[in-house]
Design a protein around this nucleic acid. Sequence first.
DNA 1: TTTGGCAGCCACACTGTCAGAGTGCTAATA
DNA 2: TATTAGCACTCTGACAGTGTGGCTGCCAAA
Lengths: 351, 351
Amino acid sequence: MAFENLTDREKQVLANLISYYIQSADPVGSRVIANKFAMGISSATVRNTLQDLEELGLVEQPHTSAGRIPTDLGYRVYVDYLLKPEDLTEEEKQVIRNTLLREGRGIDEILGQTSHILGDITNQLGVTIAPQFDRGQLTSLRLIPVAEDRVMVIVVVQSGLAKSVILEVKTQVDHRALQEVEAVLNERLAGLTLGEIRRTIDERLAGVRDEGRLINLIIDSKDKIWTDASKSEIRLAGADHLLSQPEFSDRERISGLVRLLEDGRILSDFLRQAEKEGLIISIGRENKFSEIFDCSLVTSSYQVGDISGTIGVIGPTRMAYSKLASVVEYTARTISDVLSGIDHEKEDESS
Amino acid sequence: MAFENLTDREKQVLANLISYYIQSADPVGSRVIANKFAMGISSATVRNTLQDLEELGLVEQPHTSAGRIPTDLGYRVYVDYLLKPEDLTEEEKQVIRNTLLREGRGIDEILGQTSHILGDITNQLGVTIAPQFDRGQLTSLRLIPVAEDRVMVIVVVQSGLAKSVILEVKTQVDHRALQEVEAVLNERLAGLTLGEIRRTIDERLAGVRDEGRLINLIIDSKDKIWTDASKSEIRLAGADHLLSQPEFSDRERISGLVRLLEDGRILSDFLRQAEKEGLIISIGRENKFSEIFDCSLVTSSYQVGDISGTIGVIGPTRMAYSKLASVVEYTARTISDVLSGIDHEKEDESS
DNA sequence: TTTGGCAGCCACACTGTCAGAGTGCTAATA
DNA sequence: TATTAGCACTCTGACAGTGTGGCTGCCAAA
């Protein structure tokens, strides 16, 4: 549908209606649009235009004799054709930079901070997803004996990020065998992405002499070793902002949201799949889950060396898109910068 | 206060009132107590008793001409003197065991599962806290170069649990120097608990020759290396159960709760400090945070070798204490068993 | 094409009423 | 002396009726 060729008046009315509704959260009537926005036309004219917009499916009335509110489609048109990017103030940029540039922090803390600051600045739910190792290229792999029957596998990818996994070996493995296996693994797997390795490790290690069945164990544990830690990857902050929005007065809806947030995996899978370059705005029912059918997502990806992650905000469809888009975009850029030139430190624990 | 020497009738009335209130969530009147519980006394008598209990501060009326509800103190007395442990059905035990005993899982997954099962079985918020390394004794420490300017520190404690941290070294450190430092660290620190090390590492490493300033870096990073990862340690599940309880109809209260849950640290610090052996029930305002002034916690600790962690449930003060106590206790025992005889595997990542 | 005016509509907030549930007290009873 | 039945009183919550405000749609005039 070619919504670009709405008349100027229709565009204006839609834009004004949305920008007013974003603040008021109440259905907005023709009078308000005519008066508050100095459009130089009467409310009756606005009414006519509104009828047209309603026919196009861009606005709707919650009930007769109420004002209009935008539909998902209305927001879509607004975002695609009418949005004027709203630059951040220098002060806001400062806040973001200062928070993220504080010295001596690991990627974990930085992402945590980012969630918080996104949540706080935007008054929505801030979300970050840790970089996806899946696309990182294996630089080197180490096998370290940590106890009699335990070996720690350390996976280092090109960007310098690393993850570690502990495997329990049934039979004790001597030091030399370990080194041999390590050498073989490095020889055969280095340079591949972790995703490739996970998918093809069976073939690639076929025929390798497997003393102590260590190779076998490593193949069996492929889903452990070559994927992201599934849990700590997503970080949410500012859920209370969301809950204080009028659209979350409904008990049922809160419950749904909380459930979604609690099990970060659902959301993180969803955000991941949408991962392409740059800013993405996903509105209302465009989202996959009914729990966030009246929410919108504004997300962007960030880069750390050869791998990338996602940050963004989640809020009701009635959100300040122009502002949020700028904030998210700027923050993503800042994160990329910070993570590329940083002390790559991070804690983790294992058992 | 010697609440043990309430009269039998007072004890019975209190117990019946509470057990009824736990299910109904409505103030319960004298008629109900007299009729539903076959106490062989009239409602008028119950009324008199209720007045006595009210004077003692064990029950209260939300308003004149409403029934009574228990006060925090009332619950306390109930829990301390009147509680009859309610054994789990064989079936419930099965569910718990089956869930936790599934093969091939790491401690991370097990704790996650535990949160869930606690939440689901009890219909409250299930919570687990990962074992505290702080009290674990250092078995060995490894320094592994993972990239040109990065060293991974692996800390293994007696129980076989391990954690890893990545440090950025400013100047390149050669292999031999690394091994020397590793040897020194092991020599001086092995056998101490991580907590002790964190507190006394400065003295213990004083006077060690510090080529490449590696020792120095390790001392500076002491809060990173010798503490638990602060983030992933607490796991919550079943928040929606809580939200569907009538006590959380208030918007403000939900918000407070969500805020508390979001920043797991507050809660986890709180749960930790209370960590002593066995079952702890903490009621209403006995809790430290106003956000959970009308919640109760039922917690218990579990053991993994030399270190321990906490599991439990959080719910409104109006909770089925006897049932929950049994569930939590049984689960804690099961967890200890499972973790002690398990494949100690776990994923983690670092950067 | 635009505008002012007008009739109609609907949600919402407010009010008053009423039934139900529960208490405290008192007088009678075992 | 302890218990009970009865009664007057109180408070809540549900419900129906009412009035008001804000909007729309339409129409006739500019």
